[in-house]
Computed example of a mutant assay.
Amino acid sequence: MLSDEQLLRYSRQIMLPEVEIDGQEAWLNSRVLIVGLGGLGSPAAIYLASAGVGHLVLVDDDQVDLTNLQRQIVHTSDRVGEPKVESAKQTLAALNPDIRIDTLASRLEGEALIEQVEAADLVLDCSDNFTTRFALNRACVATGTPLVSGAAIRFDGQISVFDSRVPGAPCYQCLYAEGEDEALSCSESGVFAPLVGIVGSTQAAEALKVLAGIGEPLVGKLLMLDARRMEWRSLKLRADPACPVCSAK
């Protein structure tokens, strides 16, 4: 049962016919794992917190650096040197004290990764390396947890939803083979600041849709953005029958 304060706080989305009380309660009762509190994780976490996702688990082993502040909007100048998860928690708690926020200032690996993914209703991959992306994908396929994946480099972004609960849906490794170029990162290649805001916000939108059963999530689709021209493209994805992760599931 929503309190009077919650009804007021979330009133603008409760009035949406697709959301109403049931959708808001679905968000309040959800646990979301956000891996990476950088350029993508910043806007994604802010919008999930403000929308009222009841339990956020923030994972990042890095500290806030001055070079982050050009795009990582969940952090502030006075928090340079602090763990990113603690900096993010301060921002999110101030924005919405109504939700629970847990932090893990370490890399999730092995059993700890499986446990966190299994406990979550949905995972946001906001990481910046393929090793983490492949590990998250394997854990999500193994546990049947929906995965919302985003990436941004230079002026190019992409978003997709991988949900092994949907028959015939591809997983992340159907799209990318292991052994991709790990050097392709913002620190090496640069990134257009608003791009990560657009991609991270879209990840939040897809997560909210999946959690409340709204509309058509980007399952089996890859949404690609060229921010130079502000042009979007949508590609259909198919499961790889030879995928080493999901083909035998």
Rank of each mutant, 00 (worst) to 15 (best):
L222R: 10
A227E: 12
V219L: 10
V219M: 09
K221F: 03
C246W: 01
L218R: 06
R228C: 09
V219Q: 05
P244S: 01
G213C: 08
L235S: 09
L223I: 02
R238P: 07
V210N: 03
T202M: 03
C243E: 01
T202H: 00
Q203Y: 00
R228N: 13
L218P: 11
K236G: 11
P217S: 06
W232V: 06
S247H: 00
W232S: 07
T202V: 03
R233Q: 15
R229S: 14
L225K: 14
K209N: 05
A212F: 06
M230G: 13
V245S: 00
L218Q: 05
S247A: 15
L223T: 05
K236L: 11
C246T: 00
A248C: 08
V245H: 01
R233N: 12
G220A: 12
M230R: 12
I214F: 13
V219S: 07
A227V: 09
A207L: 08
K209Q: 04
L218A: 13
L218D: 03
A227I: 11
L237D: 10
L211Y: 11
A204E: 01
E206D: 01
D226G: 12
K221N: 08
C243M: 05
A205Y: 03
A227Y: 09
W232R: 11
D226T: 09
R229G: 06
D240R: 08
L225G: 13
D240T: 09
R228L: 14
K236V: 04
E206S: 06
S247K: 04
M224I: 13
K221R: 15
D226L: 10
G215P: 13
L223Y: 06
L211T: 10
V245A: 03
G215A: 07
V219D: 01
L223E: 01
S247P: 06
W232A: 05
L222N: 06
S234E: 15
A212C: 15
P244E: 02
L235V: 12
A204V: 07
R228Q: 13
V210C: 05
R233D: 10
W232D: 04
A248P: 08
L222Q: 09
L218I: 10
R228K: 14
L222Y: 05
T202W: 01
V219K: 07
L235Q: 07
P217N: 02
L218C: 08
L237C: 10
A248D: 02
G220H: 09
A248F: 04
E216A: 11
A207Q: 05
G215M: 10
A207F: 05
R228D: 11
Q203A: 03
D226A: 13
L208F: 04
P241K: 04
S247V: 08
E231F: 08
A227W: 09
P217W: 02
I214A: 12
A248Y: 00
C246E: 01
K236Q: 13
A239F: 03
P241S: 05
A204S: 03
C246K: 02
T202Y: 00
A212G: 15
L218T: 04
V219N: 07
P244L: 02
L225T: 11
G215S: 04
P217L: 03
L237Q: 14
A212R: 13
W232N: 12
T202R: 00
R228F: 07
E216T: 13
I214V: 15
A204P: 04
D240K: 13
C246F: 00
E231Y: 08
P217T: 05
L225E: 14
P241D: 02
R229M: 08
G213K: 09
A227T: 11
G220W: 02
